[in-house]
Write a protein that binds this DNA or RNA. Sequence first.
DNA 1: AATTTATTCTGACTGAACTCAGTTATGAGT
DNA 2: ACTCATAACTGAGTTCAGTCAGAATAAATT
Lengths: 200, 200
Amino acid sequence: MPGASQPVGRRERNKQLKLDRITAAAHELFAERGIDEVTTQQIADKADIGTGTLFLYAKTKGELLLLVQNSLYAEALERGRADAENIPETLDAVMAIVRPVVECNRTQVDNGRVYLREMVFGDPAEPHHHEALTITGQTEQAVTAVLRRDARVSEADAATTARVVSAVMFLAMAASVNVAASVDEILRDIREQIAVLLRR
Amino acid sequence: MPGASQPVGRRERNKQLKLDRITAAAHELFAERGIDEVTTQQIADKADIGTGTLFLYAKTKGELLLLVQNSLYAEALERGRADAENIPETLDAVMAIVRPVVECNRTQVDNGRVYLREMVFGDPAEPHHHEALTITGQTEQAVTAVLRRDARVSEADAATTARVVSAVMFLAMAASVNVAASVDEILRDIREQIAVLLRR
DNA sequence: AATTTATTCTGACTGAACTCAGTTATGAGT
DNA sequence: ACTCATAACTGAGTTCAGTCAGAATAAATT
């Protein structure tokens, strides 16, 4: 019997099943109505678990959003990373990484903004929060990698520049000034700032 | 009789008095315990008004924090602006503007972070929120003015660069990674990023 | 001065996130 | 199979920000 080396009891299986149900329920409701129009009670009901149980799997409602969205951002990053490889010009390559992230973020504006809010102000000790930060870190690394190909950017500055890019992205997506802005408008906004950053 | 041109009735006077009491109460309690350890009920009690009245003067608890702290940030900006005037080196001059703001923000870490959170994610239609954004705008203008003195920075780029500086400041102060960081550590962090931004 | 109108105040109430003491299910030991 | 210990679950209960229908007060009008 394959896999018998790791004895996985009913406990583990049930836990995984519940987590799956919670993730599915939260994902669906958040996508449909936006996080602010959904109560934790509704998620618990849809996942067919008790109220208290929900909070065993995610300490806060915000964590629940991170749980649901992290994988989407990870995919977006992967797409951007691939796109960037074939683009020689530095600014264009950086923007190739940025674009899918912004698109992902703007699928639902409210959810996107809450996601960012949780990332910066949430509790880093929580697992889903930590994963979100990891994705941001990987995004910065991808940008760093692109910058290293550019002779104008000193090796030492690449990582710092990537952090700045990250900060610019964050504010462009999060700022209430931009709540009504389209993906392209936000991308233009970000591009302008990164252009100045790279101009030397 | 001077001032009779603007008839100020009991209504107006009472309103001002109440606003003053609310501001004082909130200021004191927030400073003492931090915003998260204070309930709106306690503020109302201390200001000697009803619960509902509080929310006539500030729509949310967050707005209350903005109401209380805006003037402090405005003062910090003024100090920085003055300091920057006598500093010829661009990076140092920018940091002279940054420093008092960071100091102000770090007087009480939790309050400082919530202030930033409200600024980015709060409702821009609210008056105190709007004022906070104005102060940020003025900070960016002060940075812009300093940058314009630098021949390396093109006139057209100055304002954009100032926005980037603003984004860097925001994240350095807000990020949970830095909750335990000292003012000097945060300043070093910001300086490093701005240095790269200005290196050309 | 009395009456009407408009504004401001109020605290009991609501809604929703999150908790916790008690219950139930699982697996280990005998 | 039975017992015990531990982990997982539960929903009534708590807390607190924010609301709202009605009371109170100030101004305007007669």
